[in-house]
Design a protein around this nucleic acid. Structure first.
Length: 697
DNA sequence: CGAATTGAGTTTTTT
DNA sequence: ACTCAATTCG
């Protein structure tokens, strides 16, 4: 509701209250982003702060970009250099400048989960422990770091973090390896910044002086370490505003701590608390349904969302036979609504708990000719070919990056096999040097064959050449790597395209900046800009809104997810997840559940999600599509006849009066056959083909 | 050393 | 279903 620029009284209060700590409890769709941007502008225009004196922390990069663009519009200034970004990118920025104080080199590289896993497997192998545990171990360590538990503290902490001697040894080793490689993992970015501030008070003071106001968005999804960081920066001047909604906390698995919201009041007892309860997004029916579901959670801050919009349409709950039917049902529903002409494809979103659930939906949409895009999913920068390229680039800046070196030393193959790699590792260990140094030593030694020496020397020369390019543009270095390694030779089409995309994203950016971007951003592209239906997980949908929302797979084992049904707290989070999904909807909400679902290549009998029984009947329309049997055969016949379509959806036609238009659908039989066309001149029209006199273009 | 085949394990959410 | 790792063979 950005149409009128006035703020409601609570929003106004939240914007104007700038002296002292403020906890803003912002319900779903309550115009939170508007408040934050207005507050930013208020601080600059009326409180005379410089924009760069305000530290604004967002949850995702996308949110940061959005905020920057709004602020640059409102203030008409360049947002370059402002402190608006995620915790990770802000910490990265601070550490690049200050990390020398912690005895790291500012050239450090950032290890993502994949790199962490590679390193961990290496360590476990060396410790002769079961290698397949690496994922779990990485997760445990990540969790410890999110709680600011260093290896030393872990040892000293006794039982309090589920102490385990083996884990302690692994953790210490892991951390040592990171340091050797001059690498930080994503959790280190936060943990080390906290350490920096705690151990170097002068540096802390510098940043306290720098930031006159601190704004934290999505506060319910911050972890202990992040909150500590904020507290360190804010405790002196106490000019801080945190914005959050405990009902929308859905990242506990990643260490997020809803408790931060409750702790904030304890840590800042003079904090003003303002609730934003007027919802500008959804209809009353949607609010009633979602409100009824979330109110079943105990331990939450009571909020009562209300709207000036009417009841709106009822919420649809549909039971279907299997996932195929569910997908078809959704596809047809989208088409029906679309054809009525009030909504474009971009107004629809299909949400699910698990990425795999997108498959049947995609198929059905394709079959109906509905354009769609899967948002999120497999992160672009995680793809193998991309990670290979990035490994080369990283070595250009940081030759000590052992994980990257191991990754590409024989990719593409240079005749350096496992035996040689083991030799390199042993040599490195013996002399406590990096793998790269170790290779150089082996070359100058005399224990290898001439051909092996040649390939090792070529590799070293190549990396040295790359190192000379470390101040070049990223694109240039990438092209150089591709050319020198012939990486593209015989590569699959799709992977080549990905590399092309990587190159185009590397334009006009320094190598260092590019590497930071690739480590801290998960995806290249954001929401679809063309007119397509969006498919995404509920997590990805956080912070977004769509006029028409479908939530699929409302079954036990999926939502709530079976891995999260043991602990009551996990169930609460699953419920919140459902709540987030429902509150994405503006006008219409469809929820569906299925009796049989093919999952992990097994057909399973599904039970309706327990959450659906909390949905109030009076706001909903229940449809059971599993009862009608005969219907199916009828549909089959129809489908066969649909094959020859004179004007398929999407084709362009000319009408003698209305001019050129795009066909949206074609339906009916024989002389009754009709077509609906969206004309540039008059909009959507339905015509009988027999009389319309259309010319196909 | 590298390629190909077989076999086994794993399937959440993301900075 | 699909990916990834180990094993085996050339």
């Amino acid at each position: 509701m950005a149409s009128h620029s006035e703020l409601n009284p609570q929003q106004q209060e939240a914007v104007l209250y700038t002296n002292g700590p403020l906890l803003l409890l912002a319900g779903a769709g309550s115009g939170k982003t508007r408040v934050i941007t207005h507050k930013f502008v208020h601080l600059v225009k009326n409180k005379k702060l410089k924009p760069e004196q305000i530290l604004t922390v967002t949850f995702t990069n996308k949110a940061a970009e959005e905020m920057k663009s709004r602020i640059s519009q409102l203030l008409k200034t360049d947002t370059h250099g402002l402190w608006i970004g995620t915790f990770h990118s802000q910490c990265n920025r601070i550490l690049r400048k200050e990390i020398k104080a912690l005895d790291y080199s500012p050239d450090f590289c950032i290890y993502d989960e994949d790199d962490q896993c590679n390193l961990m497997r290496q360590i476990l192998r060396e410790f002769r422990m079961y290698e397949a545990l690496y994922k779990g171990v990485v997760a445990r360590i990540s969790n410890l770091k999110a709680h600011l538990v260093s290896p030393e503290r872990f040892v000293a902490s006794g039982d309090s973090y589920g102490f385990d001697e083996k884990l302690a040894r692994i953790y210490a080793r892991y951390q040592a390896e990171l340091k050797k490689a001059n690498a930080l993992d994503l959790d280190d970015l936060i943990m080390l910044t906290v350490r920096l501030f705690e151990e170097k008070p002068r540096i802390l003071t510098k940043y306290q002086d720098m930031f006159s106001y601190i704004l934290v968005d999505e506060f319910q999804d911050t972890n202990v370490a992040q909150y500590r960081l904020i507290k360190l920066l804010a405790e002196r001047d106490r000019n801080i505003c945190v914005v959050g909604d405990d009902d929308q906390s859905i990242y506990k698995f990643r260490g997020a701590n809803v408790g931060n919201i409750y702790d904030f009041e304890r840590d800042f007892p003079d904090a003003r608390i303002i609730k934003l309860e007027q919802n500008y997004r959804s209809t009353q029916n949607i609010l009633d349904v979602s409100g009824a579901v979330i109110s079943r959670n105990e331990m939450r801050k009571q909020k009562r969302l209300w709207t000036e919009r009417g009841c709106g349409e009822k919420v649809y709950c549909t039971v279907l036979h299997n996932e195929e039917d569910e997908a078809k049902y959704i596809a047809r529903m989208i088409k029906d609504i679309y054809l009525k002409g009030n909504y474009k494809y971009r107004d629809f979103a299909v949400l699910y708990r698990l990425n795999i659930l997108s498959r049947p939906i995609e198929e059905a949409l394709r079959a109906e000719g509905i354009p769609y895009k899967v948002v999120g999913g497999l992160a672009f920068y995680q793809r193998k070919e991309i990670k290979d390229m990035l490994a080369y680039l990283r070595l250009a800046i940081n030759p000590r990056d052992n994980v990257s070196l191991r990754r590409i030393i024989n990719v593409p193959s240079r005749g350096i096999g496992t035996a040689t790699i083991t030799k390199i590792e042993n040599e490195a260990k013996k002399n406590s040097i990096s793998l790269f140094e170790s290779i150089k030593r082996i070359i100058s030694g005399d224990v290898i064959t001439a051909s092996l020496r040649t390939s090792l020397q070529e590799f070293v020369d190549f990396i040295e050449e790359l190192r000379k390019m470390k101040d070049a543009r990223a694109e240039e270095v990438l092209r150089f790597v591709l050319e020198k390694t012939s990486y593209m030779d015989g590569l699959e089409e799709e992977r080549m395209e990905n590399i092309e995309e990587l190159i185009s994203s590397a334009r006009d950016i320094s190598l260092r900046e590019f590497l930071d971007k690739t480590s801290l951003f998960t995806n290249l592209d954001d929401l679809p800009s063309s007119d397509v239906v969006s498919l995404m997980t509920i997590h990805t949908a956080k912070g977004l809104e769509f006029p028409v929302v479908f939530i699929t797979g409302l079954e036990e084992g999926i939502l709530p997810y079976f891995k999260a049904t043991e602990v009551p707290e996990d169930i609460c989070e699953e419920r919140r997840l459902f709540y987030v999904a429902m509150t994405r909807a503006k006008d219409m909400l469809f929820m569906s559940t299925v009796k049989l679902r093919r999952l992990y290549s097994k057909v399973q009998e599904q039970e309706i999600s327990r959450f659906l029984s909390d949905v109030p009947k009076k706001c909903t329309h229940w449809i059971d599509k599993t009862i009608t049997k005969s219907e199916k055969k009828v549909e089959l016949v129809k489908e066969v006849k649909k094959v020859d379509v004179p004007y398929p959806a999407g084709c362009r036609v000319r009408h003698p009066v209305w001019g050129i238009g795009v066909v949206r659908d074609c339906y009916g039989e024989g002389d009754d056959r009709k077509v609906s066309v969206n004309f540039q001149t008059v909009g959507l029209k339905r015509l009988a083909i027999k009389f319309a006199n259309l010319e196909r273009l």
